[in-house]
Amino acid sequence: MIETIFFEEQISNHPTTERIRKALPRSTWVPIERYQELFNKRHQNFKLQKKNPALILAKKHENFVLPVPSGFGMDSHKNFYFSHMYNCLYDCKYCFLQGLYSSANFVLFVNYEDFFHSISEKIAEYKGKSLTFFSGYDCDSLAFDKLSGFADHALTFFETFPNVELELRTKSIAINSLLQRKPLDNCIVAFSLSPSEIAKSMDSKAPNINRRINAIKQLAETGWKIGLRFDPLIYTSNWKNLYSSLFEEILNGLNPSMLHSISYGPLRFPKKMYKKAASLHPEQKLFAFPMEETKGIVSYGKKIETEMHDFLKSELNKYTSENKIFQCTI
């Protein structure tokens, strides 16, 4: 349970705030003026804060929808992302959020209606173009959904724009809000996955891979389009066997018509984020590998990346057509 909730006074009567107040009546509720008073301040310790994060309820005022960095998503589409939340319930060792923020508290922007307003403006601006909106860039799209109720709002909104895609990216198995409604043709539920052994060691607090695969199959069976995201790819001895077994496990038995796309992306960090993540987990084997640095980006280096790319591509081609597979390069 979340023990402490800081809420901006200006949204204390917002329906989302009320909903959360009803769900967490015994938590301590502390009024604040703006979320920046306590989020991402100097001298905060992400790792310690992660042990008992507070929830901050806030109102977002600007930058609701942003273009995704190039290399993220399918190039044929104009891609945008939005973050109704900062930070995540889970604690993956490679998560870039730990390098991005000094704070592990969750910020939930309760004014979903303003996000949707901005999205409709973008849709109007790019009328006739293939658009995809990604949720889950600065958070996990579904992990917090029981409390936030965001997915339901988002799906109701996107239902009215059948030509525009919404991608919900997640490691969560909190799929009830999806199962309870008719599947949306323009929504992709994209699961981030790693081989079981890797996930066990690195995806702390996230549902294990079997449970994620079950959720995928359940959603596919009820008609939801599925995205598979093998990102970040982790290099370890025996990686080829680990990844091929994972592909077999997921893709055998998954109705191919329900598979929207598969993407994979190598482990990469901006240098500053890598340093910060390594300093938070100095004992982590992930941060002991002799990574290479090119133009401020820390990675396994071209040789390993190419080897992984070639292998993954040829393995994935066994299961699905080439046009459904793409590489994420950020």
């Binding site: 052994e197 690195m202 290099y235 370890t236 001895s237 025996n238 084997k285 992930l286 002991a288 590998f289």
Partner: peptide, 15 residues
Amino acid sequence: LEKEILINAENWNAL
């Protein structure tokens, strides 16, 4: 030390 790390990285078990 870098050299020793590099040699060991070939069969590195990151888990």
